[in-house]
Design a protein around this nucleic acid. Structure first.
Lengths: 361, 361
DNA sequence: ATGAAAGCGCTAACAA
DNA sequence: TTGTTAGCGCTTTCAT
């Protein structure tokens, strides 16, 4: 049971100042005598000392705690983001408080309010609505807020997000190149600014390739969940029910629903279907298909967000310009080889290429 | 910028006691006059009031904060566990501090120490070693600790874990029934008590079915990661390199490595291979195969852990008996129908069964 | 029905 | 080189 500074002072007969000085390793700086130092250090070695963080926070008006508010921590992207943030925080002596909102604005307000009441020094939030915490968080709050992942236009806060436009542009280009003239975009929650960017990227790539009717190829649904993915695929299949040569999903949840529905409607996931999706995941490897996915850089997003937060922006009226973090296009499987199928499977070098490279740990 | 109780008292001319009474809604209980109540409430409505949590903690010697220490928050199981815990905590006015250890005992000690220094009221930890925090956390710590997910034998702490033995038993039984006489168990980190239970379940099922040489079918590797999964599959394949009729993976990471390696060695994942794995995940649906997975009940684990923690066990010398939470066997795909393959694919009712049921949101 | 005051453990400013 | 003190905002106990 460790002692408080005052107890140590009382027991050793020195003053709190002295104790504090040696406890903080500032002994020689303030020329504490060697004997004093010895006594105090022995005492601490014996009984231990841990600063009382509550008292410290009360005095310093600072908790060394930051809050993270995300739609859903069990979403792999947010879980990785949190992991990175926590690592960064720990190395700076900060601690991370996390809350999930499940895409519910009311829960978001609640979470923000609760974190604020806990006295977090700042918050990083992936909002599910146009962010405005002035009512929640007080007017002149000394509290820093940075928005991540959902770059709502005109936000009063510093904003960090992936470059979804370019990611989508490159993904769509590549799919069109490999898979033919058209592809469908199964798109959940199109009102979200990050998704809107993905739609813009999709349309830009379509127009590049002369697909002027791109609007007919974007299928939308409000909810980003598995059942919506199934519905979207149904709509994309259309009347004939032929499997599409390729499709792009706005999220992994949509992809789950789409593949499920494809199995129901077509009986299987055709090997020649090219699948594009946002958010990379190792388990995409389970699909036998050619899969192109857009990987976000969680580490860079986390680092940028924390940096922005800590530079304590004076919360100036014009927030700093948004930061866009580059994505990476990940390719899995191989472009489908129609010739090989006609000849039947071969156990040769060509087949060895199916999965190349060592799996990474 | 909300006010403190004392500011409100000063500004309204009442005493802090009065303010506190109405702020806590105990006005009528203590028969505060209606006019007083009115004044105070108006003031609070106008300026706001949020308790200063640091001051409260200092006074109460309690932070209403609990810590969660897990090997890796980006592991889907732990992410879901955390989500459940956070939800439960919020409804009780608690807040959750989470730290990842990346299976490193040093980081685990660091995390525990750091949370302890933050004054958490209790900790839930999924340890990567025989847990012993007496040095870290002080002797007579009034701090509750409950161990989750890794039921180390003889631990001094209350322990909650899935019933991995039964889960493994049922999984292996079913695989043997569907897939023939033998199956391999690709097993990472066999020293971990939860994995040891899974091995015991595997062997019990093997013995039931008369597979006395089960020891030869368990392939082990210390690290639970993707590259280990690949190595394990290599070893299981043996000299002939024929694809196995079935195999079981001790974790999703192992499965990722194993499927990857299977593609390299065999050229593809044979449709008739039956795959068993621990930890269920929606993306297992991506595999065209028959897949059986053992789903842990994160909600029940979280609830049990929090309950144990909050009942403040006096930390009696004999810890309470471990709690085992039942798992659920999840089946995906269909048992492979060899006859259907010989006849070629059919677009009929039988094929419709491939994926049955609506996808769940 | 309302008020006064002590003290939780820490830090910072000032003293000696 | 070491000591003293005044709060930070809250809760609790004891007075009115």
């Amino acid at each position: 049971m460790p002692k408080s500074i005052e107890e140590i002072a009382r027991d050793t007969g020195f003053s709190v100042t002295t104790i504090k000085l040696v406890a903080n390793g500032q002994a020689k700086k303030y020329r504490i005598s060697a004997s004093t130092q010895q006594v105090v250090e022995d005492y601490i070695r014996r009984y231990g000392y841990v600063v009382n963080h509550a008292a410290r926070s009360l005095r310093l008006r600072r908790t060394d705690t930051i809050g993270l508010v995300v739609p859903d921590i069990s979403n792999a992207f947010f879980a990785r983001l949190m992991g990175e943030l926590e690592r960064l925080c720990r190395s700076r002596g900060l601690v991370l408080l996390t809350a999930s909102t499940y895409e519910d604005p009311a829960q978001e307000d609640l979470a923000v309010r609760s974190l604020w009441a806990r006295g977090v020094d700042g918050m990083i939030v992936a909002p599910c609505q146009q962010p405005n915490y002035s009512g929640v968080v007080g007017r002149k709050a000394r509290l820093g807020v940075v928005i991540i992942d959902r770059p709502y236009a005109g936000s009063r806060y510093a904003t960090i997000a992936s470059d979804n436009f370019t990611g989508s542009l490159q993904l769509t280009r590549e799919i069109l190149k490999e898979g033919g003239a058209r592809t469908a975009f199964l798109c959940a929650n199109p009102e979200s600014p990050s998704i809107a960017d993905r739609i813009r990227g999709f349309s830009a790539a379509c127009l590049e390739e002369g697909v002027s009717e791109w609007r007919d190829l974007v299928f939308r649904t409000p909810e980003d969940d598995v059942s919506s993915g199934a519905k979207l695929l149904d709509r994309a299949l259309g009347r004939d029910g032929d499997a599409p040569a390729s499709f792009i999903c706005s999220s992994l949840l949509v992809l789950e629903g789409a593949t499920h529905q494809l199995k129901r409607r077509v009986g299987r996931i055709p090997a020649e279907t090219i699948i594009g999706t946002f958010d990379d995941h190792p388990m995409l490897d389970f699909l036998p298909n050619r899969v192109l996915s857009v990987r976000q850089n969680e580490a860079a997003l986390a680092a940028a967000a924390l940096e922005r937060l800590l530079e304590r922006h004076g919360l100036a009226d014009p927030p700093p310009p948004p930061i866009a973090v580059a994505c990476e296009l990940v390719r899995r499987g191989r472009p489908f080889d129609h010739a090989a199928v006609l000849q039947g499977p071969k156990q040769d070098a060509a087949v060895q290429e199916t999965a190349d490279g060592e799996p990474s740990a």
